[in-house]
Every structure is written in structure tokens, then in C-alpha cells.
Amino acid sequence: MADRGPAQAVDATATVDAIAAVGAPVRVGVDVTAVAEVADAVAIFGDRYLHRLFTPHEVESCGGAAAAASLAARFAAKEAVVKVLEPSGARPPWRDIEVVRRPDGACRIRLHRTAASLAAEHGVGPISVSLSHEAGLAVAVVAAACEGPADGPRQRSTEQSNTGGADR
């Protein structure tokens, strides 16, 4: 349960409040992943699965008894970031979106290559992330200020998609 904790939740909330205070549009992404699916994939595909989706740092920081849950939370975070980046063509490779775990346990999103280019193109600033896992499910919420043109309709579309649960 290393990814959970009130400190991270408060941190993410404070970030969103700060963004709202300066009036920048905010993009939010959310995703949920079943822990058992990740455990099965590791058992079936092994290192090929791990290396395709996760960076060495992510694999290393997901050791221990809750490894599958932590990996599932990171996969959810990557999917949530893709929703924020809104690629119009090919999506960025999973390893381009990295969940960096700091020594104090807090997690941050670091973008590489294609993902970093997409963020720059869309004016997406630093991305906050909050991870949690419970009862076999891992969830990630990400939020970022967007310096691009105001996109009210796009934000409403994202809200509908998330509440409808169709875009997982």
C-alpha cells in the first residue's frame, strides 16, 4: 500500500486548487485497473510484459508483497495521463509515461520522448498524480494545468466519458 496515503491526496488537491486560482484550464484523467489482470499478465508474459509497459525504476519501485497492485496503479496512471494528453494519432508508448516514486513515497509523473512532445504541443504543464488500490482494484487520478486555448467542450466531453465508464 506504498502508493496510498493522505499526504498524496492532499498534495494533488492542493495542486488543483492552485491551478484553479490562477485561472488556467485544468485537464483531469482517471483510470482503473484490476490487480488480478496485472498479476496474470506478469505470470503469463513475464519480463516481456514488464519491459514493454514499465521503466526499470517503476519495476524496481513496485517490489514486495503488493507488487501487482502497485504495477496496476502505475498502469492506471499511464492510461489516465493518455486521457490528459489526448493524442490524435498513435498513443505514446507506455514507457514514455513514468511514475517516479520519491524516497518519501510520493509519486510524480515524468514524461519522455513522444509523451513529452505531446504535452508541449498541448501546453500541458506538470502532471500531478494520486494512486490508490483496494479490493482488487487500482485507481489513478491525474491533473494538469493546460496553457493552451480554453477548451470547455473538451473538458465536458472528458467528464461524460469518465462518468459513463465507457472509455477505460
Binding site: 496485472v38 499478465a41 498502469f75 477505460r168
Partner: peptide, 15 residues
Amino acid sequence: FQAGMTSHASVNVML
């Protein structure tokens, strides 16, 4: 995806 395949399942399908 409309039939219920999740994004994570699509990774397993790909592999």
C-alpha cells in the same frame, strides 16, 4: 472495447 475489452486486456491481446 464496446464489447467490454479493457485497455489492459488489449495489452495482453497484443502480446
